[in-house]
Design a protein around this nucleic acid. Structure first.
Lengths: 337, 337
DNA sequence: GTGAAAGCGCTAACAT
DNA sequence: ATGTTAGCGCTTTCAC
């Protein structure tokens, strides 16, 4: 594998010159720089990141810690992170917990500590006090995406605000019997988010003098299947049915939609459904939702860290990322009873 | 940050002993090893991967190159790769093209060449001859997942076989008017897969003396929305309608389902729909499909490479990964006309 | 079973 | 503008 000496020797210059030229540092004549670039290209030379790290202290890589990859929010956010890192010439190393609580300490006590990265993005994780301590001890620049961890900065939408927007919209349409499908805190995935949204649900009901019926608060684990099952149980309850369902995510809203459809409950005539996310499937299905962009949140968070690595002042409180109500066909005024 | 010397000094042993003890190498007494392990734990010492790489030649990291993260197959396969790597103590560095053709050469000529990884997994990519050459020149052990690249080994299901199973099932039910939604080769994503499935579709029709109508072969780009639009056009064509649709992926089958539903076409009474994948949503929706497990394919591929890095003989032709017909509610015999 | 020391391939400080 | 050189923090011979 061709090294910096090969390039230097081929040109009769020193390795320092090659290093400087390749990294665009000052102190190299245009002519020399040109020759170096050409020769490096010709020989297919690229610096070894390990050697560069050892010598410079920078790995040019960033880590992402997440509970699971294969979930809409996570993979979208990962895409955004990668986009920002790619543009900055950084590599992305991904630490997934794989959806289980196992391996957690392995990740915390081996991988992340291997000094492979310059900064760390923590995605939607609920950390134990020990893990938080371990993380802070590493003292990488870090930031959380889509999850509040005490003592860490967070990049996300205003979850309470987004949920409030959804509720106010339903209430504004005239709904008074509103159910809520909340997400769950499985696998140590973030729990502050579903909780904040639930609180906004309750607060909206209360603000408008509406009844919060315990049996209308159901749990969907942030998943389609679980939500469909929970919605089925909701619809099959004796007595009055809600005229609207506010789901804490689009995937869960899809579950509600399918459960309703299987029972012949017409949407939106008999039942309004609203979600949060603007998942790829939401538009084709006609789901009203509150849009957020995990991809933008990911790239914003990555850029934040990238900037700080380059000496930008530390931003103590990242601003809320935007959310927006998107009205489609799944919501309408309640049936005039 | 605590280094190997700190541990050695604290114990009054040499760095060589610490290194050996920590890596489980022979030539260390049980007593010494115990002390070293305890002290390392106490000091929170973990070897720097860069320094270890430089000295040993091994990075203990594997790269994954893919066109996009945020897509069912990709993120599931990534999860599987990560699972296998995690178990082996390897880290995963992800190179995404981000769904565009841009940055391709950046990835090929910078990131991947940085000697950050010991082996490379290439996921569902169509490579230019130059890229293939670049890749082979790197001479990382490598393997492809879910995409055939000339000259590289591939881990995937038997795509032709899977498509044949789907078609034979529909034909066995009595269908004679069968449409096909094929995937597309956008963004330089693999194109052999949709093509092989399409060929199996054609071959099955021909084998049974059924007509292949060009207007019944539509393209869904492996996406829900595009597939729904294409299916809508299909259903709105004048003349006879197909009684069954074979979609090359579940997400595209969902599009067909929604397009049918919007037109009041009853499934499965008037229209049977079958997909490939067994996407998370397939079961709750009742979609008949041919199951594959990208996660298992990912971990199989990773383990293959991991084994070879440890000296296992090179497997020239990885076996096909399993697929299985899963019959649900979206298929039935055609309406008796 | 253990230690000393020579690198691994770069970068950065210091010379020139 | 360019060269020299001392590390960066490990692993791995080679001695003992």
């Amino acid at each position: 594998m061709t090294g910096i000496d090969d390039v230097a020797r081929a040109l009769g210059v020193s390795t320092a010159t090659v290093s400087r030229a390749l990294r665009g540092l000052p102190g190299v004549s245009a002519a020399t720089r040109g020759k170096v670039l050409a020769k490096a290209e010709e020989l297919g030379y690229v610096a070894s990141s390990s050697a560069a790290h050892l010598a410079s202290g920078r790995t040019m890589a960033m880590g992402v810690l997440l509970p699971l990859i294969d979930r809409w929010y996570f993979s979208s956010a990962l895409e955004g992170v990668d986009r920002a890192l790619r543009a900055a010439g950084y590599d992305m190393v991904v630490f997934s917990l794989g959806g289980t609580g196992l391996n957690r300490d392995r990740v915390f006590h081996r991988s992340m500590l291997r000094k492979r990265i310059d900064a760390l993005l923590v995605m939607c994780m609920e950390l134990t006090p020990e893990e938080l301590a371990a993380l802070q001890q590493l003292d990488y620049p870090n930031v959380t995406i889509g999850g509040y961890v005490d003592g860490l900065r967070n990049v996300s939408i205003d979850d309470g605000g987004a949920a409030t927007d959804a509720m106010e919209y339903l209430i504004g349409l005239g709904h008074t019997r509103i159910a809520h499908v909340r997400g769950g805190g499985e696998y140590g995935i973030e729990f502050a988010v579903p909780q904040q949204r639930e609180e906004a649900y309750r607060a909206a009901l209360e603000r408008h003098g509406l009844e919060a019926r315990p049996q209308w608060l159901i749990t969907g684990e942030f998943r389609f299947l679980e939500s469909k099952l929970a919605a089925a149980r909701l619809f099959d309850q004796p007595g009055e049915r809600p005229t609207a369902v506010f789901a804490s995510s689009d995937e869960m809203a899809f579950g509600v939609l399918v459960a309703a459809q299987e029972r012949g409950i017409r949407v939106p005539e008999e039942l309004s459904v609203i979600g949060i996310d603007d998942h790829e499937f939401a538009e084709p299905i006609g789901l009203t939702t509150v849009r957020q962009s995990p991809e933008d949140q990911g790239s914003y968070a990555a850029e934040l860290l990238l900037g700080e690595l380059q000496g930008a002042p530390r931003l103590a409180t990242p601003p809320f990322q935007p959310h927006e109500l998107i009205i489609r066909r799944s919501t309408a005024p309640p049936p005039s009873s």
